[in-house]
């Protein structure tokens, strides 16, 4: 399975956020603040789980706020309280949805975001194979990673 590179990730986040982001790839990285609400699964055309995406709650909140010009404080307050913000996470899910296009560009298998809430509470079903640390100007930073099932 091929995962998006740093450049493609930056382009996607910049398009969605309308501002520049700093991205570094973290070799053998893990996300730091995995949350059931920021765990996503892409399905193949037979509806089988194919790719796992995990994101730090901080990144999901920050990106979800920046996209809609919502103040950074709302995102960081929600993260500090460990309280998922429904609206910010819905915005962030659009980013996750669009990342499927990057995966489909690079692989023969066709995937789409599981339309159901995944809410993965147990241990991750697979290790992450590509992890990025993303910094958004004026907002919190955080990690996002991909793993193949």
């Amino acid at each position: 399975m091929q995962f998006p590179d740093k450049t493609a990730m930056a382009e996607t986040f910049e398009m969605m956020l309308g501002k520049e982001v700093d991205i570094v790839e973290v070799p053998h990285g893990v996300v730091k603040d995995r949350h059931p609400k920021t765990t996503y699964v892409y399905l193949n055309d037979s509806d089988e789980p194919t790719i796992l995406v995990e994101a730090d709650l901080s990144l999901a909140h920050a990106a979800g706020a920046a996209m809609a010009l919502i103040p950074p404080s709302r995102a960081s307050d929600a993260t500090e309280a460990g309280e998922p913000d429904v609206e910010l996470l819905a915005n962030f899910k659009e980013v996750i949805n669009i990342l499927s296009a990057l995966l489909n560009d690079r692989n023969d298998v066709h995937v789409r975001l599981d339309p159901h809430e995944t809410e993965m509470t147990g241990p991750p079903p697979t290790d992450l194979q590509a992890v990025f640390e993303i910094e958004i100007d004026r907002y919190d930073s955080g990690r996002i990673g991909f793993g193949a099932y």
Binding site: M15, M16, G18, G64, M67, A68, A90, N91, E94
Partner: peptide, 15 residues
């Protein structure tokens, strides 16, 4: 169907 995507399309139209 996504309000935030509609915002992003609007913004990109401006850009």
């Amino acid at each position: 169907d996504s309000p935030v995507m509609r915002k992003i399309v609007r913004r990109t139209l401006r850009q």
